[in-house]
């Protein structure tokens, strides 16, 4: 490893940019979520604050900043305050290996995808700590659900990505992008349609979004693992949740949809357009499908996604072996 000032400065600048991206992303996503939900349910959504309600999300975040931090009695104080911090900071690291443009990568690592998957595991841990330390049955149940769900959905997700890694022969996100072309028929989604399907389904499970949002199912668990958090504690969970959504969408864009490559000119605009298209899809299905039951959720994963992803990996390995 090369220690140099340039790399340090690069990482610090990148971390600042990523924080900006996370906050901006949360504001945009909250607005999009409420507006799309409104249109799907044939109502206007937010329209009072600012033109077409665009300032609503800003006002909400101001409210969260100004709220009192309330700590319930008998919580495990260290773990209670550690959990939201632990949810927020690993996400910063996750954005570093993403190639946003031909030259816009904060950290060039050969095992970029492993880096992302490794630090994504810390997110579950924060959910767990939050649920356990809150001294609340709803929180504990939410945390227990979060774990069994995330651990389960991580496996088909990794196997789907592994199929693409087999095909490209590289774990470097930039290299994977470079092997795809600008036009949709040159993307990996055409050669790996099953992997893309599995990835998108397990992405919903991994980010705890409806219809798979059992850890925070409000009709059964109040708010799940973050029931006892108010103000900035809740805001940090909220931010990291939306950042995680953006991250898995960016990874999907890189691995299956050609990353920053696109017609006319390559650049960060394409990767963001693709990632936000996937996010729009996530919002869309959230307001379209009802929540599944917990046993159904686990059955989908262990009885369908896992065998399918293993089959896909096996087929990919055979085809790659035959072609080379």
């Amino acid at each position: 490893m090369d220690l140099s000032l340039a790399i340090f400065v690069q990482i610090i600048v990148a971390a600042l940019l990523v924080i900006g991206l996370m906050v901006g992303n949360a504001v945009v996503m909250v607005y999009m979520e409420r507006k799309v939900a409104g249109f799907i349910q044939r109502r206007p959504g937010p329209y009072e604050v600012g033109p077409w309600g665009t300032l609503q999300a800003l006002c909400d975040s101001m409210k969260l900043l100004a709220k009192q931090l309330y700590r319930p009695g008998n919580v495990d104080i260290i773990l209670y305050y550690l959990a939201p911090i632990l949810a927020f900071f690993p996400v910063l690291l996750l954005f570093l290996p993403i190639p946003f443009g031909p030259y816009l990568t904060a950290l060039n690592v050969n095992e970029g995808i492993i880096l992302i998957l490794a630090f994504a595991g810390l997110g579950v841990l924060s959910n767990l700590l939050a649920g356990w330390s809150s001294n609340n049955k709803y929180s504990l149940l939410g945390a227990a659900r979060a774990v069994s769900q995330t651990v389960a959905y991580e496996i088909p997700m990794i196997l789907a990505l592994l199929a693409v890694v087999f095909q490209c022969g590289s774990m470097d996100l930039k290299n994977v992008t470079e092997q795809q072309g600008a036009w949709p028929w040159e993307w990996n989604v055409l050669t790996q349609p099953l992997a893309f399907f599995i990835y998108v389904v397990s992405l919903v499970g991994e980010t705890n979004r409806a219809p798979f949002d059992l850890p925070e199912a409000e009709s059964e668990l109040a708010a799940g693992f973050h029931t006892e958090y108010s103000g900035m504690g809740f805001a940090l969970f909220f931010l990291s949740e939306y950042a995680n959504m953006l991250l898995v969408s960016l990874v999907a864009a890189v691995f299956f949809l050609g990353g920053y490559k696109g017609p006319v000119a390559d650049g960060f605009w394409w990767i963001f357009i693709k990632a936000y298209a996937i996010m729009f899809f996530l919002v869309w299905i959230r307001w379209t499908f009802p929540r599944v039951r917990f046993d159904q959720l686990l059955n989908i994963n262990w009885k369908w996604l896992l065998p399918l992803s293993l089959l896909n990996l096996w087929l990919t390995a055979i085809i790659v072996k035959l072609l080379i």
Partner: peptide
């Protein structure tokens, strides 16, 4: 050995410890 380091995180922190918690 960055690959081993990341695998350590992925397997031990991300899976083993989470299962212990569970």
């Amino acid at each position: 050995s960055p690959f081993l380091a990341l695998m350590q995180l992925l397997i031990y922190v991300g899976a083993v410890c989470v299962l212990i918690f569970f």
